[in-house]
């Protein structure tokens, strides 16, 4: 999959690939060096011209590392935990335990799926109520055994379907919001791709909330917002800008606690470096949070969310 605005980068990448497949010839090194410098210049140019809508497309890129990819890249000894002990095992929400450098964590994340087959199995990363209930069951277990929780957000949103409504999608998310607030262990959430509305927030009530540099987090998809407010879903680019959904914007608004860097060219091009940055940040943060008492972890988390919002004591001018 090649994004429209990355076509130039892609062409040079293809040329480099073709060149490397050739046998060495006298001018080989010089040509390669030339192509590589063109490549870096092009990436720098394209990435300096990003806007919120382009970042949204990067965040949704099919080659972007998924939750399972990060598990493989940063963790060891992953044990998956299945089912909500009620309805079933939501494949869009993966839960389990893993180690990062011998530190033990409970982990929860949405999985979009990269191939059509996996995407279908994962319901395109859109959880049903049982997904949120599974996540909550695992979070409560982490609380019981006093282990930190890492969540990885990557969803268009909670699934809007008949069964989802019949089984209480709203109630399931609401319950998670309240119960996550009350957890007495460190909770760190990271938006790794798309943070879609309440479906994202349902695993997002954390002591620290991070976003990868080229991820987005929004109350409604830019397309959805455009079709309601602009009455035209093709105005998604304008809506993306107005909604302030990028990591930079949300850090400025004080709604997230930090940005995890991705190399220019983004995680779909540099998964390993991105994973390394993610790993470092998660270890550093959980270590810091572990110094707080169990009650303090809860109180701080509740107070943090109680203080969110912007309003005034004076009327609008």
């Amino acid at each position: 999959m090649v994004l429209e605005f990355e076509k130039g980068i892609h062409e040079i990448e293809e040329k480099i690939k073709a060149l490397k497949e050739k046998d060495k010839f006298p001018d080989f090194d010089k040509q390669l060096e030339l192509l590589e410098s063109k490549y870096h210049a092009e990436i720098e140019k394209v990435y300096s011209e990003l806007n919120p809508w382009k970042i949204t497309q990067i965040a949704r890129h099919l080659d972007r590392p998924t939750f399972l990819d990060y598990i493989n890249m940063i963790g060891t000894d992953f044990v998956e935990i299945h089912g909500d002990r009620n309805i079933g095992d939501d494949q869009a929400m993966i839960t389990g335990m893993m180690k990062i450098d011998e530190e033990k964590f409970f982990i929860i994340g949405q999985q979009k799926g990269k191939t059509m087959e996996e995407a279908k199995k994962r319901n395109f990363g859109m959880p049903n109520p049982e997904g949120y209930k599974k996540a909550l069951r695992v979070m409560k277990m982490a609380d019981k055994f006093n282990r930190p929780i890492l969540t990885f957000i990557n969803t268009q949103g909670a699934f809007p379907g008949i069964e989802a409504e019949e089984r209480g999608q709203g109630e399931a998310i609401a319950r998670n919001l309240r119960e996550m607030a009350k957890l007495r262990v460190p909770v760190v959430a990271t938006v790794i791709g798309e943070g879609g509305s309440g479906g994202a927030l349902g695993i997002g009530v954390a002591n620290m909330v991070f976003m990868l540099k080229y991820s987005v987090y929004s109350v409604i998809s830019p397309e959805g917002c455009a079709s309601i407010l602009w009455r035209d879903s093709t105005k998604a680019s304008e809506a993306a800008k107005a909604l302030k959904i990028t990591a930079d914007d949300l850090l400025k608004l004080g709604l997230i606690d930090g940005i995890i860097d991705e190399p220019l060219g983004a995680a779909h091009r540099y998964p390993e470096q991105t994973a390394q940055n993610l790993k470092n940040k998660l270890l550093e943060t959980t270590k810091e949070l572990a110094r707080m008492s169990r009650n303090k972890l809860m109180d701080r988390r509740i107070d943090k969310f109680l203080n969110m919002g912007k309003f005034s004591e004076k009327p609008l001018k």
Partner: peptide, 22 residues
């Protein structure tokens, strides 16, 4: 949620639920 407040409005879901927890 009130779209015109962007993520500030989404966070009111967490805020009101945290208030209920309190």
């Amino acid at each position: 949620a009130r779209m015109q407040e962007g993520m500030l409005s989404l966070m009111q879901m967490a805020k009101t639920s945290a208030a209920v927890a309190k």
